[in-house]
Write a protein that binds this DNA or RNA. Structure first.
Lengths: 349, 349
DNA sequence: CAGCCGGATTTTAACGTTCAACTCGGTCAG
DNA sequence: CTGACCGAGTTGAACGTTAAAATCCGGCTG
C-alpha cells in the first residue's frame, strides 16, 4: 500500500491488540504471540508477514495482560528520598539513574515511591510486591543495624540492599562500595607521589560512611608507616565548604603541616582548596588535594577525587534482584572505588 | 520473640487472590470486589466479614488484573536524566520526588526510564503508552522550541510539560515557574530594604532559565527607576563558585559598587559571599546577598534565596495529567516562586 | 394471594496475553 | 500398510479482576 512506510498508520480505534495483528496477518493469535516471544518457532515466511503487520499497526504487547498471564510485572521499586543537606544526597539521583538504566538492560522498569519514614517504606514495599506491581525492591543507604532487611525478609519480599548489612544468616543480598579502600587508594597515590605528611578531613563521627572513610586513612597511613606519634593529621567536622576550609586551615597552620590533604567529600576538599589559596599557596603544587565522590564540581575545580562505580552498583543490584533463572540471590558484593587523578594531586611532593 | 499479633499470617501458597478471600468470607468474588471498590454497596455485616478475611489473608488486589480489566495502569512516566554539572541538576531529583508524592496522592505511581537522547525519549514514551504501561508522561525541562511536544501530540500520547512551550494551538499542557518574577521579588525586597545599587550575577546568555532571570532583574530595576545610565550592575558567567566570586569581586571593586547582589543561583551567591569576606566585609551587613533555588547550602550559609514551589509543581502536573474525570487538560500554569529571607539580606542598607 | 419492588448478592462475560493440548499433513522405519 | 513422529499452526483455557446482567428474597401493594 502507498501509506508512508516510516510512520505506522494509526489504528482505527482504541489500542491495537494481538487479535488485530492476527487478523491483519491472516494467522491465529497464538502465532502472533509466538513471533513476539519465540521467533524461531515460526516459519520465516509467516514470521515476516506477522512482523510487517505488527509494524503497520504499531502493535505493542499489553503489559498488564502479559503481567497477569506470566505473573511477573517486569518492575522493581525503590524509594526516592526527599533531598537533604547531607553530602550524599546528590549520590541518590545518580544511583536511581543507574538503577533505571541497569533495569532496562534486563527488561525491568523502575518504579519510584515517596514515603516519610522507614515504617511506611516497608509497608509500601510489602504492598507493592503482594499486589504484583513489582518483582522486588531495592533498599538505599542500608546501615549495619538497619531494621528494614529483617522486616522484608519476614514478609517474604525479595530485596537487595545498597549498603552493607550485618547479616547473621547470610540471607540478605547487598552491594556496597568499600569506603575505606577508597581513601586507602588515595593515600597510596599520595605516598607514591612522595608525600609523607598526609592529612585527612572527615565527617563527624558516628555515621557509617564517614567512619569507614576515616578508618581507611588510619589503616593506609599505618601500612606506610606514616602514622608516627605526632603526625595524627586527621580532623573531623561538618560536611560543609566552610568547615572544610576551617579544618584545612587548622592543619596547615601547624608546625608539622601536611603536604597533602585527603577529604571525605568534594565539598570539604573545595573548602580546603580555598584555605590553601588564602595562605598564598597553590593547590596542586604546594599542597596536594583529593576529594571524594567525584561530583561535577570536582571536574570544574580540577580536583582529584574518588569515584564510586555507580553504574556498576546498579548492574550488580539488578543482577541480584532479577537473576535470569531462579530466585533472588543473597550475594554480598563489595566494589572498589576508583581514583580520578586531576591537577590537584598530580604534582610530586 | 513471639510473633507479633499485628502481622497477618502468611498465606499457605502463592499470592492471595480475591477468590481466596471470597471462600474465607463465604461470599462470591464479586462481593469482595465490591467491598474493595464500592463499600457502600454491601451490607455492613457482610462487609466486615469480608474485610476481616482480607486482613487475615493479607490480600492485596492484583495490579495487573485490575489494570487489564480497567485498561488503566495507574502509572505515569518521566525520564530520569543523567547527572550533569548544570546547576539545575539538583532540581531534578526534587522534581521527581514531588512528582512521585503528588502522583501517590491520586493513586498513581511514578515510573522512571533512562534514555540517551530526545529521540529515544519520545520513542520510549510512545511505547510505554501504547503498551498500556502508563497513562501519560511528564516532560522535564521543556524549552520553547522543544521538539518533543509536537512529536508526542502526533503519536497521541498524553503528556504534560514542566517548562513553557511556545504552543500555537494551545493543545499542550504545561506548568512552569516564573523565573523573571522570582528575581523581581528579590529586587523588591532589596529596594524595600533601602538598597539603590543592586547588582546581578547571571548565567551565560542563551539559555531560557538564565535569560529569564536576567530579564527579571532588568524589568524590576527599571520599575524602581534604579537602572540609571551608569548603574548597569549586571554581569554574567559560568555557574560555578569561582565564577561567582570573580564576578562579585569585579562589581565590588567598582567605584559605584553595589550594596546588594542578586545571584541566579546559590552557587554563584556562595562565591559572592566569599568575595565579600575576602574584601574584609561582612555578608548581610555590608553587602546584602540573595541566591536562587534554595538549595541545602543556602540554609547552611544563612543565605536568602528564591524557592521554587516544587511540590506545587508536582501537584499541578499530576492534576493536569490525571484529571478525576475526562482527558488530559491543556492548561498553562505559571507559578510564582517564593523568597526565603535569611540573614544575608535582612539588614537594611 | 398474585404481582411487584428494591436491596443484596451471585453469575456471566470480558480485558489481552500465553501455556498446554490438540489438529493436520507429511515422512519414515518396521 | 501401519503407526510413530515431526514441524507448523490452531484451539481452548486460564491468569485475577470488574461491569453488567441475572437471581434471590422479604416486604408491600392492590
Amino acid at each position: 500500500m502507498a501509506k508512508s512506510p516510516a510512520r505506522p498508520a494509526a489504528p482505527r480505534s482504541g489500542p491495537v491488540t494481538i487479535a488485530d495483528v492476527a487478523v491483519a496477518a491472516g494467522v491465529s493469535k497464538q502465532t502472533v504471540s509466538n513471533v513476539m516471544n519465540y521467533p524461531e518457532k515460526v516459519r520465516p515466511q509467516t514470521r515476516d508477514r506477522v512482523l510487517s503487520a505488527v509494524a503497520d499497526l504499531g502493535f505493542q504487547p499489553n503489559r498488564a495482560a502479559r503481567a497477569l498471564r506470566s505473573s511477573s510485572a517486569g518492575m522493581i521499586a525503590c524509594r526516592i528520598e526527599p533531598v537533604s543537606s547531607h553530602s550524599l544526597a546528590h549520590l541518590h539521583d545518580r544511583f536511581l539513574h543507574a538503577l533505571a538504566e541497569a533495569g532496562q538492560a534486563v527488561g525491568r522498569h523502575l518504579m519510584l515511591f515517596a514515603v516519610d519514614d522507614v515504617e511506611n517504606e516497608v509497608v509500601t514495599c510489602v504492598r507493592l510486591v503482594r499486589s504484583g506491581a513489582v518483582e522486588g525492591v531495592v533498599l538505599y543507604n542500608v546501615v549495619p543495624d538497619d531494621p528494614r532487611p529483617s522486616m522484608l525478609l519476614d514478609a517474604g519480599v525479595p530485596f537487595v540492599c545498597f549498603g552493607r548489612f550485618s547479616d547473621s544468616a547470610g540471607a540478605t543480598g547487598w552491594v556496597d562500595v568499600d569506603n575505606a579502600a577508597g581513601i586507602a587508594v588515595v593515600v597510596e597515590h599520595l605516598a607514591a607521589g612522595g608525600h609523607q605528611r598526609i592529612g585527612f578531613l572527615g565527617f563527624p563521627e558516628g555515621h557509617r560512611v564517614g567512619d569507614d572513610r576515616a578508618r581507611g586513612w588510619v589503616t593506609a597511613m599505618d601500612r606506610h608507616g606514616l602514622l608516627a606519634g605526632s603526625h595524627r593529621l586527621d580532623v573531623r567536622g561538618e560536611d560543609t565548604w566552610i568547615s572544610g576550609a576551617r579544618m584545612a586551615r587548622g592543619l596547615l597552620d601547624r608546625a608539622d603541616a601536611p603536604t597533602a590533604l585527603v577529604a571525605a567529600s568534594d565539598t570539604l576538599a573545595a573548602g580546603a582548596m580555598q584555605a590553601v589559596r588564602d595562605l598564598g599557596r597553590t593547590p596542586g603544587e604546594d599542597v596536594a588535594l583529593v576529594g571524594y565522590d567525584d561530583t561535577p564540581s570536582a571536574e570544574v575545580l580540577d580536583l582529584s577525587s574518588v569515584r564510586q562505580p555507580i553504574p556498576e552498583i546498579g548492574r550488580r543490584i539488578v543482577e541480584a534482584l532479577c537473576p535470569p533463572d531462579g530466585t533472588v540471590l543473597s550475594v554480598a558484593t563489595l566494589l572498589a572505588p576508583e581514583l580520578i587523578v586531576r591537577g590537584s594531586s598530580r604534582h610530586r611532593a
